[in-house]
Design a protein around this nucleic acid. Sequence first.
DNA 1: TAGATTGTTAATCGATTAACAATC
DNA 2: TAGATTGTTAATCGATTAACAATC
Lengths: 223, 223
Amino acid sequence: MTADCRPSEARVPDATVARLATYLRVLGVLRERAVTTVSSEELATAAGVNSAKLRKDLSYLGSYGIRGVGYHVSTLTDEIARTLGITVHRSVALIGVGNLGQALAGYNGFASRGFEIAALLDADPARIGSMILGHVVRDIADLEEVVAEHGITIAVLATPASVAQDVTDRLVVAGVTSILNFAPVLLTVPSHVDVRKVDLAAELQILSFHETRKAAAALAEAQ
Amino acid sequence: MTADCRPSEARVPDATVARLATYLRVLGVLRERAVTTVSSEELATAAGVNSAKLRKDLSYLGSYGIRGVGYHVSTLTDEIARTLGITVHRSVALIGVGNLGQALAGYNGFASRGFEIAALLDADPARIGSMILGHVVRDIADLEEVVAEHGITIAVLATPASVAQDVTDRLVVAGVTSILNFAPVLLTVPSHVDVRKVDLAAELQILSFHETRKAAAALAEAQ
DNA sequence: TAGATTGTTAATCGATTAACAATC
DNA sequence: TAGATTGTTAATCGATTAACAATC
């Protein structure tokens, strides 16, 4: 594979990838406001980062800015979307349609930012067959079939922790290579599979740590 | 403020704080299984990290291990919980009881890991006054009153993006100093307030980036 | 040309990790 | 004592950021 026109092979640091999603969101807001050009300083401020960091991040994608001018909102949007791979259609399966799963199924942010929830799956007979926001809930027993049907490679896991690993093993065999995990367990997967974990209680615990630190500082101040 | 007995003032790196929450979860599982002692190697494996990193992390809390033996599960649990500040009761307000907010209100993981959802607030008259999982939904107009009533310092923000900043400004004035933000906007807050952001679509975009990279690698392989 | 802003360099900072002396 | 495992050191790695030459 030659890469003489596109620098897409150049390794993009993890920290940069995470921020690209933020830049893309801000660019979307700018486009809605009919803003056509933006400087690194403006975009960085809107995204909550340092402008040097933003320019460094964008430099991994190539050279799409114009010195003395800034970046074209539309060009930059396209390049970031392409780098993130959301210019191709991405079908996502959502496993576990409990409390959280239903909320995720109804979350408009997925569709508006490049993803289609193509299938809902659950193990509960009471839920299987019911309609949730335009989708029939399918039996988890049909997981392999559903994944093949929609060419799914990304799954969102919102099952109870107790079954998360079993479901993961089946997803991997079925061909899923990316998992967004909401179950509070460490998933074991082969090296070609990526897992990202969202741990809501952990987020609160991190905030709690800083609360303690602030309370101690306030005490020291007062004394 | 003197600190001759407790090293709690020693700065704990951000990356370490985030992992402490994970260690605490794993220790909870061990305690359920009546395991009393664990080595850094075992705990690290269960948490998905390198054992050197785990020992380094724990060393910021003090010296609670026993050479040649490992760590007492109960001692370590207590010390991490104390460091994270979840030995004191933490009342949390949840703002925005839409799709996601309702799911968060019903999430058992909060209570089991040290937090009480003490109040639900919303602006929608159709929701105000209704009961959700044992809580009456209060009017967002009463925000200041509710925060004071329960001594709330941590808020979970699950409102539409359009009102997130306004609500945040009121929360800050009311005395909230930590916010877990699910709205896809950058919140502006004074420096004494901590914000953590959960961006679900961004998580999928990060996975999508790696999908693209893997697809390119597979192509290069095949060719 | 003059002013503005990018893309890149290099210094700095923080996090990770292997290795091992300390010690249970 | 012998074996095991911690806590810490120091080397390495990756990310951040100020500064500025390149250039629109």
